[in-house]
Amino acid sequence: MLLLALDTATPAVTVALHDGTDVIASSSQVDARRHGELLLPAVDRVLAEAGLRLDAVTGIVAGTGPGPYTGLRVGLMTADTFGLALGVPVYGVCTLDGLALAADLEEPFVVATDARRKEVYWARYADSRTRLTDPAVDRPADIAGQVAGVPAVGAGALLYPDTFPRAHGPEHGSAAALARLAAERLAAGEELPAPRPLYLRRPDAQVPKNYKVVTPK
């Protein structure tokens, strides 16, 4: 098994290679505005570090968000197209699950990333491998009751200390953690879903009521 994992759903552009036993190479660069430019060179670097070619990969793992759409799509489109060109399966894993695994906690906690517009993408976990709730997008103050008293990880938690007083790292998505999760689940005989973007919000668009009259009154 050789999995190539990508995640661009948070400010980090992250790439990792997993050989079925462990992560053998990885890269993470934090730059929220340059996902499109950074991802392919990062893949190239990670492959070079492992001394492997892309056609050795047996599966692609993509972080499905939730995350800011434009960046999220860079990873998903890249993963889908790699899958097409190489004829290998593409698996989707929730980006928050990767953060949860990277947090390495054995107690209940919350993962929250920055959803901009004063909101967070978040979910609750029983431990690092067990998510309890579907990912959601909310204003921190509106979920304070649901996240009270437990530790929180992710940049969204660190941004809003009033709601998440016990916030700490890791801050951003991790392809290495996604690759580990996918490798574990595949080894356990689980089927992984095809990647579907978790947008959680409708596109901003309003149906116009009527055109604006131009004749001066």
Binding site: G36, L40, V43, L54, R73, T78, A79, F82, L84, A85
Partner: peptide
């Protein structure tokens, strides 16, 4: 459109690289 262009550019790069 910036976001729309980026989807195509991402696909083209991945396709060219993989092939």
């Amino acid at each position: 459109l910036a976001g729309a262009l980026l989807v195509g550019v991402s696909a083209a790069k991945a396709y060219a690289y993989a092939l």
